[in-house]
C-alpha cells in the first residue's frame, strides 16, 4: 500500500528520528509512505478567525499536491499521512473548512491562481490511525523484540485530539497509543495529564512557563514509574525533552526523563535498530533501554 506522506518542516530537522523511524516501521508493515513532491510548510497553526483566507493557502496547496500525486499514479490512495500532530491538525481543519465553505474554496482558488483547483478529495490522517486500521494484531505479529518490561507513558498533547471532531481518538481518554504500546509488548503507564498542553509555541518567548507545564507532565510520569514518555508531536517532544534543561533550573532535584516518538519504539520492537535514531533524543533514552535489556550494552 503506497500512501502519500506529508512530512512538515520539523521532521526534516530536529525530528529526523521521528521521520526515519516512522518510514522504516510503516514499510515493515507493508505501508510505503511516499513523500509529497514540492510540499510547503502547512503554516501551522490552523486559522481560527472566520474571515481568514490567506492562511488556507499553505495547507490547501499541499492537498493539491496529494491530488496531483494520486493522479500521476505515485500513490494508491488520497489519504495523506502525517506524523506531526500540528501538521495533522492544520491540514485536517483547513481541508474540512474549504470542503464546507464553497465561498472560501473559491477565494483560495482565485488567490492561488497558478495551481490546479483543489478537488476536495483528500483525507488527512495521522499515522496512528493508519496503524489502528491495520489492526493491532498485525503490528504485534511483526514484533521481533518485544519491549518487555519497558514502562512507557503515552502523551498526546492537544492537537491530535482537539478540538472536538478533529481528533484521532476519544477526546478525554484516548487509547490508540496505549494499544500500540501493548502490541509492541511494552507496559503502559497512565498519566492524568496525557492530554494537557505542554505550552506549545510559548517555548519561544516564555520558556519558564513551558518548563512549569512540562514539569507537571514529566513529574506525573516519573512518579508513576515510567521509564520514558512517548509522543507524536515534535513540539511536545521539544518542550518535554530538550526543555528539561529549563525544568532543572526551576525544580531542584528533578530527575531527567527520556521522551521518545512512538515510532522509535515501534522501530526498536520491529528489530529496525538502525532506524530508531535514539542518539538524537535529549535526554538520551538509551541508558533506560539498556537497563531493560532492549539495547545492547555500549561497546
Amino acid at each position: 500500500m503506497r500512501l502519500p506522506y506529508y512530512p512538515g518542516c520539523t521532521l526534516k530537522t530536529t525530528a529526523q528520528n521521528f521521520e526515519e523511524s516512522a518510514l522504516a516501521s510503516a514499510r515493515a508493515l507493508g505501508v510505503e509512505l511516499v513523500e509529497l513532491p514540492r510540499w510547503n510548510c502547512c503554516g501551522t497553526v490552523h486559522a481560527l478567525a472566520k474571515d481568514d483566507v490567506m492562511h488556507y493557502l499553505a495547507p490547501i496547496r499541499n492537498l493539491i499536491r496529494v491530488e496531483e500525486m494520486a493522479e500521476s499514479g505515485l500513490v494508491d490512495e488520497k489519504r495523506v499521512v502525517t506524523l506531526c500532530a500540528m501538521c495533522y491538525n492544520t491540514l485536517k481543519r483547513a481541508n474540512a473548512v474549504v470542503k464546507e465553505d464553497q465561498e472560501k474554496m473559491q477565494k483560495v482558488r482565485e488567490i492561488m491562481e497558478r495551481e490546479n483547483p483543489y478537488g476536495g478529495s483528500v483525507q488527512v490522517v495521522h499515522l496512528l490511525q493508519v496503524l489502528r486500521d491495520l489492526d493491532w494484531s498485525k503490528v504485534a505479529d511483526r514484533v521481533e523484540r518485544p519491549l518487555k518490561g519497558l514502562r512507557v507513558a503515552p502523551y498526546y498533547g492537544c492537537l491530535l485530539l482537539r478540538p472536538r471532531g478533529f481528533g484521532i481518538d476519544d477526546v478525554d481518554n484516548p487509547q490508540v497509543m496505549e494499544r500500540l504500546l501493548e502490541a509492541l509488548g511494552a507496559e503502559v503507564v497512565n498519566i492524568p495529564f496525557k492530554t494537557k498542553c505542554c505550552g506549545a509555541y510559548h517555548t519561544v518567548q516564555m520558556k519558564e512557563v513551558v518548563a512549569e507545564l512540562s514539569h507537571r507532565i514529566l513529574d506525573q510520569a516519573s512518579s508513576a514509574g515510567a521509564d520514558m514518555v512517548a509522543t507524536a508531536c515534535p513540539l511536545c517532544e521539544y518542550n518535554l525533552g530538550p526543555r528539561q534543561e529549563e525544568v532543572k533550573k526551576l525544580f531542584r532535584g528533578f530527575a531527567p526523563l527520556p521522551v521518545v516518538y512512538f515510532t522509535q519504539l515501534m522501530a526498536l520492537a520491529f528489530g529496525l535498530e538502525e532506524a530508531t535514531g535514539f542518539e538524537q533524543n535529549d535526554p538520551d533514552p538509551r541508558p533506560a533501554l539498556r537497563a531493560r535489556g532492549l539495547l545492547k550494552e555500549e561497546s
Binding site: 512530512p7 518542516c9 514540492r38 510540499w39 510548510c41 503554516g43 492562511h55 499553505a58 488567490i111 492561488m112
Partner: peptide, 27 residues
C-alpha cells in the same frame, strides 16, 4: 511564510521564489 506565492508571481526572472524560501525553512 504564508505560502501565498506572491513572491513567485512578482519575480521577473520566473524563479520559484516561494519554493526556495520553503526549502530553506525545512533546511
Amino acid at each position: 511564510c504564508l505560502s501565498c506565492n506572491t513572491c513567485t508571481k512578482a519575480c521577473p526572472q520566473d524563479i520559484m521564489v516561494m519554493d526556495y524560501v520553503q526549502a530553506a525553512l525545512r533546511g
